[in-house]
């Protein structure tokens, strides 16, 4: 049996070392995959995480091991890793900006006009980190939906809860995160 499949099974059985090992194995592949996606993509197109995760599934998991159970678990795992990949990338971009200007002057802090802001992945990541401290399941749901592109049905099946619960928990998590991200000072949480 393929190493990844074995590890997936161990992880399902609650082996946290297996999880770490899986991340270590899949992270570089997913990252490279994302990079190659970008190189292939024509400018003006955006790439959906969903497509990437599906492709990763096909490329990483051997055909014989692609059972329904493995599929869900793999997707959950991939969603987590996608979160890492994307956040790391956002950090890299930020570092790039910083380095290229050597961060010795930041004119923008005083003078830039604030445009409508897209989701700041780094802030989102730390908000998710805080959320996971008191509600792991909601964190997972956000990961799967936002980073892994899984549907409510898929998430429900995976977490063994009802579609409705997924929908409700998603709404709450999203509202909480929106409050965190748009708050003037994101660390003002009590």
């Amino acid at each position: 049996m393929d190493e990844i499949t074995q590890l997936l099974e161990k992880r399902r059985a609650g082996d946290s070392a297996a999880e770490a090992k899986l991340v270590e194995l899949v992270y570089p592949r997913l990252r490279r995959l994302a990079a190659s996606f970008i190189r292939r993509e024509r400018p003006g197109h955006t790439l959906q995480a969903t497509a990437l995760v599906h492709e990763a599934y096909l490329r990483i998991l051997p055909e014989n091991d692609r059972t329904l159970v493995n599929r869900s678990h793999f997707f959950a795992l991939a969603a987590r890793i996608m979160r890492q990949v994307l956040v790391d990338h956002a950090r890299g971009k930020r570092a790039k900006k910083r380095n290229s200007g050597l961060q010795m002057v930041t004119l923008e802090e005083e003078h830039a006009i604030e445009p409508a802001r897209p989701v700041d992945l780094i802030d989102l990541d730390s908000a998710l980190q805080r959320l996971s401290e008191f509600d792991v399941r909601k964190t997972q749901i956000v990961e799967m939906r936002y980073f892994g592109g899984l549907s409510n049905e898929e998430i429900a099946e995976l977490l063994n809860i009802s579609d409705r619960t997924v929908k409700r928990e998603w709404s709450l998590a999203r509202a909480w995160l929106a409050g965190q991200l748009h708050a003037p000072n994101p660390s003002s949480e009590k």
């Binding site: 996608m82 990338h89 936002y146 995160l177 929106a178």
Partner: peptide
């Protein structure tokens, strides 16, 4: 926040907004 969230997080994360 729930009512005002609009499309927040509704679009799946697009890796690396290239263009």
């Amino acid at each position: 926040d729930h009512r005002g969230a609009g499309a927040f997080l509704e679009t799946v994360a697009a890796p690396f907004s290239l263009h």
